[in-house]
């Protein structure tokens, strides 16, 4: 089912693009990444809105008071949180549901690019059997031209310089580390300064781990995937810039107006009336 719904359509679209860009697989990967980004843009917008709403909530006076008041009563806290979400019109899942939906698309994209660069007979057979005959002509399209710039997209990328013939420099892996780091930093929202702010902690750790993990994958896997990583990082920054959610201050020493994210506002909205009644002291008869 996974192959039928995700992999096969992705493969055919990727190879259709490949056939339209003069059999250049690197360009096809970049354009395919852009296409996926455009198609999932509504989900990205929803995710950003959800994240922003949750972030705003962290500075909401009612929220903060509620956390302090019910910190020892998890059940009551959860109940009050849901009530506040409802009152403020915040969907706590809005920030993560788009990610959950995009996750299989990302996996599908990885598998599609890997399978398209068939390096074994079994992989080529799979490719041949999954092309839509009305859309693509097998004889014209297979095998794919896996060379792009200095790379063989089916192999891990290494650049061998004439004066250093035995040492391959993983240029693309380095680019992946740098672009992943920049993307993470640029998308990290302005913080509240609270050392106990969990979302800030999460962002800090992701900024630290992600570049190395992505770099390791780019170093060890086929370079076609690394091209996808770089393209994806750049398109993500552009996407967030257009939506005005990029935090240039995290990277540049000077302010940049284009796409600059605004700081999270502090909302002073009061708690619902049922929870604003003071706790009554027991009275003597």
């Amino acid at each position: 089912m996974w192959d039928t719904i995700i992999i096969t359509p992705f493969l055919n679209v990727l190879l259709l693009i490949y056939s339209l860009v003069f059999s250049n697989f690197g360009i096809a990967i970049i354009l395919f990444t852009l296409l996926i980004r455009v198609l999932t843009h509504p989900l990205t917008v929803q995710q950003i809105k959800g994240t922003q709403a949750m972030q705003n909530l962290q500075t909401n006076k009612s929220w903060i008071e509620m956390q302090k008041k019910y910190k020892d009563d998890k059940e009551k806290l959860a109940k009050e949180q849901m009530a506040l979400y409802k009152e403020l019109g915040v969907n706590p899942f809005a920030s993560c549901l788009p990610t959950v939906i995009q996750f299989p698309i990302i996996i599908g994209l990885y598998q599609t690019i890997t399978r398209a660069m068939a390096s074994t007979p079994l992989q080529l057979l799979f490719l041949e059997q999954h092309l839509y005959p009305g859309l693509l002509k097998v004889s014209a399209i297979l095998p794919l031209n896996s060379h792009f710039l200095w790379m063989n997209l089916g192999q891990p990328e290494r650049l061998f310089l004439p004066f250093l013939p035995t040492v391959g420099i993983p240029i693309l892996a380095i680019v992946v580390v740098v672009t992943t780091y920049l993307q993470s930093r640029l998308m990290t929202p302005p913080t509240t300064g609270d050392p106990h702010d969990q979302s800030a902690q999460m962002a800090k750790m992701m900024n630290l781990y992600m570049p190395f993990l992505m770099g390791w994958m780019a170093w060890s896997l086929a370079s076609g995937l690394a091209v996808y990583f770089v393209a994806s990082n750049i398109f993500t920054v552009l996407q967030y810039s257009i939506l005005g959610k990029v935090n240039w201050r995290n990277v540049l020493p000077f302010p940049l107006k284009f796409g600059q994210a605004k700081s999270a506002p502090s909302s002073g909205k009061q708690l619902p009336s049922s929870t604003r009644k003071p706790v009554k002291k027991s009275q003597a008869r």
């Binding site: 996996i107 990885y110 598998q111 690019i113 890997t114 399978r115 390096s119 074994t120 007979p121 079994l122 992989q123 799979f126 902690q201 999460m202 750790m205 992701m206 781990y209 992600m210 993990l213 994958m217 896997l221 995937l225």
Partner: peptide
Amino acid sequence: LTLVVLFFFLILSACTGAPSSTW
């Protein structure tokens, strides 16, 4: 969070395509 991130990338590594074997 560290464990979640590592698990995510373990899954991703495992899901990165067809195995490099044949008949």
